[in-house]
Simulated scan of single mutants.
Amino acid sequence: MSAMARQSNAAGAVTNPIRVMVVDDSVVVRGMVGRWIDEDPNLAVVASHRNGRLAVEDVNRSNPDVVILDIEMPDMDGLTALPLLLEKKRDLVVVVASTLTRRNAEISLKALQLGAADYVPKPETNAGVTTSVDFRRELVEKVTSLGQRARSRSGRTGAAAAAPMPPVIGRPSPAAKPKAAFTIRSYSSIRPRILAIGSSTGGPQALNALFGEIGSAMGQVPVVITQHMPPTFTAILAEHLSKSAGRPAAEGKDGETIVAGRIYVAPGGKHMILAKQGNDTVIRLTDTAPVNFCKPAVDPLFKTVAEIYGNATLAVVLTGMGADGAQGVTQIGQAGGSVIAQDEETSVVWGMPGAAAHTGQCSDVLPLPEIGRKVSKILLGGRP
């Protein structure tokens, strides 16, 4: 169903769906993704192009809210087209779709630095695209959530813009002030012996900014991170974080003893948890089912951090879709640890940090620039 047709639907139907442009050199992918988008009543395809040049030329006319952008295309690739699209439409949301090669992972992370909102790993073959339930679910969820967030920030109205953000987060209304919507508990009086971080959509950008602030202060604690990312991407993320923090960072390895001053990133496709082995704390990688539709997931990591470190835990929940991490935040808070959640205004999506805030177990809800300063102060032994 076209966007124009939907605007004339009967009362109660979506009258202003999120407008989506699909840019991919494969006619099969464009057709399949276009059908998925048009089957969702909150979304509508307004343009479909085979390369970046055509997308750039058409973006003002078709006026999309969200662009799904392939990386490898003839004439003009996605990375070249991205800044040109954002220059023409500053509030445009771009979701990069790329296959799981190291080169494409590098390009996708570069795209995030250039202003893309998020990425979706694409199956390597057209047949994989047509049969992948996970790819379809993740793509539609991200387009919907990011499109709604962009409309909310720009003040645009419409049924789709006003709808709550999926999956199922208790999100304050635009008129509500976040600090009035949840309870804040006191920080632990114990100096942290670990820093645990969970993030998703918008997380790579937030993590790099955070580690640029706290790198010099984290010499006395290990740092463990679960960022929702596929394999290959997490290894490259760790390399980027090492540069930002000036500290060694890598994917966690099964059986590895964690030590102060190092950053351990949960590898894509595995859950990373912690366990005691004598006097040491070691990493365990598990291949169990996804948690909160995610693998790796934040909740399993936070749960084991709470069990081992208790009130000597400092955790941070950064921008991301969904509610992953909320159960772990509750366990950390009940064990006497401290949790900081990113605020709504500076989050790309206030799903995970919003869910964490609403547990009543956070000690602060702060803008991203303030989180780094607060964490550094706490890690260096200062009073919160």
Rank of each mutant, 00 (worst) to 15 (best):
F135C: 13
A117R: 09
R156H: 05
Q205L: 13
I197S: 04
T201M: 00
R136E: 07
L114W: 03
E106C: 08
I197P: 01
I190M: 13
E124Y: 14
S199V: 06
P178L: 05
A150T: 05
E124F: 15
P164L: 04
T99S: 12
D134E: 15
A105E: 08
I169K: 01
I184K: 12
F135R: 11
T125H: 08
V168M: 08
P192M: 07
I194D: 09
R151P: 02
E138A: 14
T99M: 09
V143P: 10
K177Q: 11
T131V: 15
V140F: 02
R103D: 12
A111L: 08
S132Y: 05
R136G: 04
A161F: 01
R191H: 13
Q148M: 12
S108C: 07
P164I: 07
I169N: 02
L100C: 03
A175I: 06
P174Q: 03
A175W: 07
R103P: 03
K177R: 13
T125I: 12
P167W: 00
R153E: 06
R149S: 12
G128M: 14
R171S: 07
S154C: 03
V120D: 09
S145Q: 12
T101N: 04
V140A: 06
S152R: 14
N126T: 14
S98V: 00
Q148E: 06
R151L: 10
F182Q: 06
I169H: 02
V140I: 15
G147A: 03
E138G: 13
P123Q: 03
V120G: 09
E138N: 14
G170F: 11
A97I: 08
D118P: 12
K110F: 07
D134V: 15
P166H: 07
S145M: 13
T131S: 15
R137V: 13
I184G: 05
I107E: 14
R149Q: 14
I194N: 10
S108M: 08
